[in-house]
Amino acid sequence: MIPSAFEYHRPPSVAEAIRIVSERGDDARVIAGGHSLIPMMKLRMAHLEHLVDLQDVAELRELSIADGIVRIGAMVTQHELITHEGLAQAVPIVREAALLIADPQVRYMGTIGGNLANGDPGNDMPGLMQCLDARFGLEGPEGSREVAARDFYEAAYMTDRADEEILTRITFAASTGGYAYEKQKRKIGDYATAAAAVLINAQDGRVSRASVAMTNLSDVPVWSEAAADALIGTACDAAACDAAVAAMSAEIDPQEDSRGPIEFKRHVAGTILRRAIARAWARA
Protein backbone atom coordinates (compact mmCIF):
# COMPACT_ATOMS: atom_id res chain seq x y z
CA MET A 1 0.00 0.00 0.00
CA ILE A 2 2.82 2.38 -0.86
CA PRO A 3 2.42 4.63 -3.90
CA SER A 4 4.98 4.98 -6.63
CA ALA A 5 7.64 7.61 -6.10
CA PHE A 6 6.92 11.29 -6.63
CA GLU A 7 8.45 14.66 -5.95
CA TYR A 8 6.77 16.77 -3.28
CA HIS A 9 6.09 20.49 -3.62
CA ARG A 10 4.59 22.82 -1.06
CA PRO A 11 4.10 26.19 -2.77
CA PRO A 12 3.15 29.26 -0.71
CA SER A 13 0.67 30.70 -3.22
CA VAL A 14 -1.90 29.78 -5.84
CA ALA A 15 0.25 31.43 -8.51
CA GLU A 16 3.24 29.24 -7.63
CA ALA A 17 1.07 26.12 -7.53
CA ILE A 18 -0.30 26.92 -10.99
CA ARG A 19 3.22 27.50 -12.29
CA ILE A 20 4.32 24.04 -11.11
CA VAL A 21 1.18 22.35 -12.48
CA SER A 22 1.49 24.15 -15.85
CA GLU A 23 5.15 23.19 -16.21
CA ARG A 24 4.62 19.55 -15.29
CA GLY A 25 1.33 19.00 -17.09
CA ASP A 26 -0.20 15.55 -16.65
CA ASP A 27 2.61 14.47 -14.33
CA ALA A 28 1.47 16.85 -11.58
CA ARG A 29 -1.57 16.84 -9.32
CA VAL A 30 -2.53 19.18 -6.53
CA ILE A 31 -3.42 17.68 -3.18
CA ALA A 32 -5.80 19.28 -0.70
CA GLY A 33 -6.75 17.03 2.24
CA GLY A 34 -5.65 14.00 0.24
CA HIS A 35 -8.37 11.69 1.51
CA SER A 36 -9.50 10.78 -1.99
CA LEU A 37 -6.16 11.12 -3.78
CA ILE A 38 -3.89 9.31 -1.31
CA PRO A 39 -6.02 6.13 -1.25
CA MET A 40 -6.02 6.16 -5.07
CA MET A 41 -2.24 6.61 -5.11
CA LYS A 42 -1.79 3.77 -2.64
CA LEU A 43 -3.86 1.51 -4.89
CA ARG A 44 -1.74 2.76 -7.81
CA MET A 45 -4.88 3.88 -9.56
CA ALA A 46 -3.58 7.45 -9.56
CA HIS A 47 -0.11 8.00 -10.99
CA LEU A 48 1.78 11.24 -10.69
CA GLU A 49 5.34 12.41 -10.51
CA HIS A 50 4.80 15.74 -8.83
CA LEU A 51 2.51 16.23 -5.85
CA VAL A 52 1.64 19.87 -5.22
CA ASP A 53 0.46 20.29 -1.62
CA LEU A 54 -1.75 23.35 -1.09
CA GLN A 55 -1.59 23.36 2.73
CA ASP A 56 0.60 26.48 2.94
CA VAL A 57 -1.60 28.59 0.66
CA ALA A 58 -3.20 30.79 3.31
CA GLU A 59 -5.63 32.48 0.91
CA LEU A 60 -7.33 29.12 0.31
CA ARG A 61 -8.14 28.73 4.02
CA GLU A 62 -10.35 31.82 4.32
CA LEU A 63 -14.04 31.66 5.08
CA SER A 64 -16.00 34.90 5.08
CA ILE A 65 -19.63 35.92 5.22
CA ALA A 66 -20.49 39.48 4.23
CA ASP A 67 -23.62 41.10 2.84
CA GLY A 68 -25.34 37.74 2.68
CA ILE A 69 -22.62 36.20 0.52
CA VAL A 70 -20.58 33.23 1.74
CA ARG A 71 -17.06 32.81 0.37
CA ILE A 72 -15.18 29.64 1.21
CA GLY A 73 -11.59 28.89 0.27
CA ALA A 74 -10.99 25.49 -1.29
CA MET A 75 -8.78 24.32 1.60
CA VAL A 76 -11.41 24.87 4.29
CA THR A 77 -11.97 21.46 5.88
CA GLN A 78 -15.24 19.70 6.58
CA HIS A 79 -14.42 20.04 10.28
CA GLU A 80 -14.10 23.80 9.89
CA LEU A 81 -17.40 23.96 7.99
CA ILE A 82 -19.05 22.11 10.90
CA THR A 83 -17.54 24.23 13.68
CA HIS A 84 -17.95 27.67 12.04
CA GLU A 85 -20.78 29.32 13.97
CA GLY A 86 -21.31 32.12 11.46
CA LEU A 87 -21.74 29.63 8.65
CA ALA A 88 -24.14 27.55 10.73
CA GLN A 89 -26.25 30.70 11.19
CA ALA A 90 -26.09 31.82 7.58
CA VAL A 91 -26.40 28.47 5.79
CA PRO A 92 -27.22 25.71 8.29
CA ILE A 93 -27.62 23.03 5.61
CA VAL A 94 -23.83 23.02 5.12
CA ARG A 95 -23.18 21.82 8.69
CA GLU A 96 -25.99 19.31 8.44
CA ALA A 97 -24.49 17.82 5.28
CA ALA A 98 -20.84 17.96 6.39
CA LEU A 99 -21.67 16.00 9.56
CA LEU A 100 -22.79 13.13 7.34
CA ILE A 101 -19.50 12.93 5.43
CA ALA A 102 -17.04 10.16 6.30
CA ASP A 103 -15.89 10.13 9.94
CA PRO A 104 -14.28 12.63 12.35
CA GLN A 105 -10.68 11.93 11.34
CA VAL A 106 -11.46 12.27 7.65
CA ARG A 107 -13.40 15.50 8.25
CA TYR A 108 -10.36 17.12 9.90
CA MET A 109 -8.42 16.60 6.67
CA GLY A 110 -11.04 16.50 3.91
CA THR A 111 -11.66 19.87 2.25
CA ILE A 112 -14.61 21.40 0.47
CA GLY A 113 -12.44 22.09 -2.57
CA GLY A 114 -11.23 18.53 -2.83
CA ASN A 115 -14.73 17.19 -2.36
CA LEU A 116 -15.99 19.44 -5.18
CA ALA A 117 -13.10 19.19 -7.64
CA ASN A 118 -12.67 15.42 -7.50
CA GLY A 119 -15.91 14.81 -9.39
CA ASP A 120 -16.70 11.63 -7.49
CA PRO A 121 -20.46 11.02 -7.84
CA GLY A 122 -20.47 9.79 -4.23
CA ASN A 123 -19.26 13.09 -2.80
CA ASP A 124 -21.92 15.09 -0.97
CA MET A 125 -20.77 18.67 -1.54
CA PRO A 126 -21.35 18.83 -5.32
CA GLY A 127 -25.09 18.17 -5.00
CA LEU A 128 -25.33 20.51 -2.02
CA MET A 129 -23.58 23.28 -3.95
CA GLN A 130 -25.92 22.76 -6.89
CA CYS A 131 -28.84 23.03 -4.51
CA LEU A 132 -27.41 26.32 -3.17
CA ASP A 133 -26.63 27.54 -6.72
CA ALA A 134 -22.98 28.08 -5.76
CA ARG A 135 -20.30 29.34 -8.09
CA PHE A 136 -16.79 27.90 -8.24
CA GLY A 137 -13.74 30.09 -8.76
CA LEU A 138 -11.05 28.52 -10.94
CA GLU A 139 -7.55 29.87 -11.42
CA GLY A 140 -5.16 28.82 -14.14
CA PRO A 141 -2.32 30.09 -16.28
CA GLU A 142 -4.80 32.14 -18.33
CA GLY A 143 -6.28 33.86 -15.29
CA SER A 144 -9.36 33.26 -13.22
CA ARG A 145 -12.95 32.43 -14.09
CA GLU A 146 -16.16 31.37 -12.44
CA VAL A 147 -18.40 28.43 -13.21
CA ALA A 148 -21.82 27.64 -11.80
CA ALA A 149 -21.90 24.45 -9.75
CA ARG A 150 -24.85 23.41 -11.89
CA ASP A 151 -22.65 23.56 -15.03
CA PHE A 152 -19.46 22.11 -13.55
CA TYR A 153 -20.01 18.34 -13.59
CA GLU A 154 -19.77 16.49 -16.90
CA ALA A 155 -19.41 12.81 -15.96
CA ALA A 156 -17.89 10.75 -13.17
CA TYR A 157 -14.54 12.39 -12.31
CA MET A 158 -14.94 14.69 -15.32
CA THR A 159 -15.55 18.37 -14.68
CA ASP A 160 -15.26 21.69 -16.44
CA ARG A 161 -11.93 22.29 -14.67
CA ALA A 162 -8.92 22.13 -17.00
CA ASP A 163 -5.89 20.10 -15.88
CA GLU A 164 -3.79 23.16 -15.15
CA GLU A 165 -6.56 24.96 -13.27
CA ILE A 166 -7.13 24.90 -9.51
CA LEU A 167 -10.56 25.24 -7.91
CA THR A 168 -9.81 27.99 -5.40
CA ARG A 169 -13.06 29.30 -3.92
CA ILE A 170 -16.76 28.66 -3.56
CA THR A 171 -19.32 31.45 -3.40
CA PHE A 172 -23.03 31.28 -2.63
CA ALA A 173 -25.78 33.32 -1.05
CA ALA A 174 -26.86 32.81 2.53
CA SER A 175 -30.07 30.81 2.52
CA THR A 176 -33.06 31.81 4.58
CA GLY A 177 -35.90 29.39 5.06
CA GLY A 178 -36.28 25.67 5.47
CA TYR A 179 -33.53 23.23 4.69
CA ALA A 180 -32.66 19.56 5.02
CA TYR A 181 -29.85 17.25 3.98
CA GLU A 182 -30.90 13.60 4.15
CA LYS A 183 -28.50 10.77 3.45
CA GLN A 184 -28.99 7.03 3.48
CA LYS A 185 -25.75 5.11 3.93
CA ARG A 186 -24.90 1.58 4.97
CA LYS A 187 -22.46 2.58 7.67
CA ILE A 188 -20.46 5.53 8.98
CA GLY A 189 -17.92 6.51 6.37
CA ASP A 190 -19.85 5.10 3.44
CA TYR A 191 -20.96 7.09 0.46
CA ALA A 192 -24.67 7.64 0.04
CA THR A 193 -27.00 5.00 -1.28
CA ALA A 194 -29.06 8.12 -1.90
CA ALA A 195 -28.89 11.66 -0.54
CA ALA A 196 -31.07 14.71 -1.00
CA ALA A 197 -30.47 18.41 -0.41
CA VAL A 198 -33.66 20.47 -0.17
CA LEU A 199 -34.23 24.19 0.40
CA ILE A 200 -37.76 25.53 0.78
CA ASN A 201 -39.10 29.03 1.36
CA ALA A 202 -42.69 29.49 2.47
CA GLN A 203 -45.06 32.39 2.03
CA ASP A 204 -48.68 32.41 3.24
CA GLY A 205 -48.60 28.66 3.82
CA ARG A 206 -47.34 27.86 0.36
CA VAL A 207 -43.96 27.04 -1.11
CA SER A 208 -42.62 30.20 -2.70
CA ARG A 209 -39.15 28.91 -3.64
CA ALA A 210 -37.54 25.50 -3.65
CA SER A 211 -34.35 23.78 -4.72
CA VAL A 212 -33.72 20.03 -4.88
CA ALA A 213 -30.49 18.16 -5.60
CA MET A 214 -29.71 14.43 -5.35
CA THR A 215 -26.38 12.68 -4.75
CA ASN A 216 -24.93 9.36 -5.95
CA LEU A 217 -27.88 8.55 -8.15
CA SER A 218 -26.21 9.32 -11.47
CA ASP A 219 -22.64 9.86 -12.65
CA VAL A 220 -23.07 13.53 -11.76
CA PRO A 221 -25.11 15.29 -9.07
CA VAL A 222 -28.73 15.80 -10.13
CA TRP A 223 -30.20 19.25 -9.53
CA SER A 224 -33.85 18.74 -10.34
CA GLU A 225 -35.58 21.93 -11.35
CA ALA A 226 -38.69 19.89 -12.15
CA ALA A 227 -38.84 18.49 -8.62
CA ALA A 228 -38.62 22.00 -7.18
CA ASP A 229 -41.28 23.26 -9.62
CA ALA A 230 -43.59 20.48 -8.44
CA LEU A 231 -43.45 21.96 -4.95
CA ILE A 232 -43.67 25.65 -5.75
CA GLY A 233 -47.14 27.14 -5.23
CA THR A 234 -48.38 24.12 -3.27
CA ALA A 235 -48.95 23.67 0.45
CA CYS A 236 -46.29 20.93 0.29
CA ASP A 237 -48.98 18.32 0.72
CA ALA A 238 -48.80 14.62 -0.14
CA ALA A 239 -49.75 15.19 -3.78
CA ALA A 240 -47.00 17.80 -4.19
CA CYS A 241 -44.43 15.48 -2.62
CA ASP A 242 -45.54 12.65 -4.92
CA ALA A 243 -45.13 14.95 -7.91
CA ALA A 244 -41.69 16.09 -6.75
CA VAL A 245 -40.53 12.49 -6.26
CA ALA A 246 -41.87 11.53 -9.69
CA ALA A 247 -40.07 14.47 -11.29
CA MET A 248 -36.82 13.61 -9.50
CA SER A 249 -37.13 9.94 -10.45
CA ALA A 250 -37.28 10.85 -14.12
CA GLU A 251 -33.91 12.61 -13.85
CA ILE A 252 -31.79 10.16 -11.86
CA ASP A 253 -29.95 7.23 -13.41
CA PRO A 254 -28.73 4.96 -10.58
CA GLN A 255 -26.52 1.98 -11.39
CA GLU A 256 -26.45 -1.36 -9.63
CA ASP A 257 -23.48 -1.80 -7.31
CA SER A 258 -22.66 -3.01 -3.80
CA ARG A 259 -25.23 -0.56 -2.42
CA GLY A 260 -28.03 -2.36 -4.18
CA PRO A 261 -29.94 -2.92 -7.40
CA ILE A 262 -31.45 -0.09 -9.40
CA GLU A 263 -34.98 -0.62 -8.17
CA PHE A 264 -33.85 -0.45 -4.56
CA LYS A 265 -31.88 2.73 -5.16
CA ARG A 266 -34.89 4.35 -6.81
CA HIS A 267 -36.98 3.38 -3.80
CA VAL A 268 -34.41 4.82 -1.37
CA ALA A 269 -34.09 8.01 -3.44
CA GLY A 270 -37.84 8.58 -3.17
CA THR A 271 -37.91 7.92 0.56
CA ILE A 272 -34.94 10.17 1.22
CA LEU A 273 -36.38 13.00 -0.86
CA ARG A 274 -39.74 12.74 0.95
CA ARG A 275 -37.97 12.96 4.31
CA ALA A 276 -35.89 15.93 3.19
CA ILE A 277 -38.92 17.78 1.84
CA ALA A 278 -40.88 17.13 5.05
CA ARG A 279 -38.06 18.37 7.26
CA ALA A 280 -37.29 21.41 5.09
CA TRP A 281 -40.98 22.33 5.00
CA ALA A 282 -41.27 21.99 8.78
CA ARG A 283 -38.38 24.45 9.13
CA ALA A 284 -39.60 26.85 6.40
Binding site: Y8, G34, Y108, M109
Partner: peptide, 12 residues
Protein backbone atom coordinates in the same frame (compact mmCIF):
# COMPACT_ATOMS: atom_id res chain seq x y z
CA UNK B 1 -6.46 17.20 14.77
CA UNK B 2 -7.07 13.47 14.92
CA UNK B 3 -5.74 12.00 11.69
CA UNK B 4 -5.41 8.53 10.25
CA UNK B 5 -1.67 8.38 9.71
CA UNK B 6 -2.03 5.77 6.96
CA UNK B 7 -3.58 8.53 4.84
CA UNK B 8 -1.04 11.29 5.42
CA UNK B 9 2.30 11.45 3.67
CA UNK B 10 5.22 12.13 5.97
CA UNK B 11 6.03 15.03 3.65
CA UNK B 12 2.66 16.62 4.45
Amino acid sequence: KSVKSCTVFAAQ
